Amino acid sequence: MSDMDKAHLNNMVGPIMRQGALARAVFEAAEVDNPDRKILMEDKVAYVRIQTEDEMILRQETIEEMLGKPFKLNQLEVDMASFAGRIETKADHVRFYFAKHL
């Protein structure tokens, strides 16, 4: 069974983004905003999968800090091709999570 066939058998959550400066900033922000979690970034050439187990928080302020310029959370949608888990958006952060765990 390939990794793609087993994707439904884990609790990994997070954004799937186009390669670029924003994806790198989101990865770095995820590490800062989720200090107790191991953040993984899978490079798939055209896109990157940024993920962790169960829950990931991305704060607007942290992404701005990593980018070195102002950033609005709705700009995340431009480079985010997809995501794993459920998503909850607030004015100052985005949360990826699962309601049920395996």
Rank of each mutant, 00 (worst) to 15 (best):
D5P: 00
D5N: 13
D5R: 10
D5A: 15
K6F: 14
K6W: 11
K6N: 12
A7S: 12
A7N: 05
A7V: 13
H8P: 00
H8R: 06
L9A: 09
L9Y: 12
L9R: 09
N10H: 09
N11V: 05
N11P: 00
N11C: 12
N11L: 07
N11T: 06
M12K: 10
M12T: 03
M12H: 07
V13L: 04
G14P: 06
G14H: 08
G14V: 05
G14Q: 08
G14R: 08
P15G: 05
P15F: 09
I16D: 05
I16A: 05
M17W: 11
M17C: 06
R18A: 11
Q19K: 15
Q19W: 13
Q19R: 14
Q19Y: 14
G20H: 08
G20V: 10
A21G: 02
A21L: 14
L22C: 01
L22A: 01
L22Q: 00
A23T: 05
A23M: 04
A23C: 13
A23H: 03
R24Y: 10
R24G: 04
A25V: 03
A25P: 02
A25C: 02
A25R: 02
V26W: 11
V26K: 03
V26L: 06
F27Q: 02
F27S: 02
E28Q: 13
E28N: 12
A29M: 02
A30L: 02
A30D: 01
A30V: 01
A30E: 01
A30K: 01
A30N: 01
A30P: 01
E31W: 01
V32H: 03
D33R: 04
N34G: 02
N34H: 07
P35Y: 04
P35M: 10
P35W: 10
D36T: 12
D36R: 11
D36N: 10
R37P: 01
R37T: 11
K38E: 15
L40C: 08
L40Y: 15
K44E: 13
K44P: 00
K44L: 15
K44D: 09
V45T: 07
V45I: 06
A46R: 03
A46Q: 03
A46H: 05
Y47I: 09
R49T: 10
R49S: 15
I50V: 05
Q51S: 13
Q51G: 08
T52M: 09
T52N: 06
E53L: 09
E53W: 13
E53Q: 12
D54L: 11
D54Q: 07
D54V: 07
D54F: 14
E55D: 03
M56I: 01
M56S: 03
M56F: 02
I57D: 12
I57R: 11
I57G: 00
L58C: 07
L58Y: 11
R59Y: 15
R59P: 00
Q60E: 15
Q60R: 15
Q60W: 09
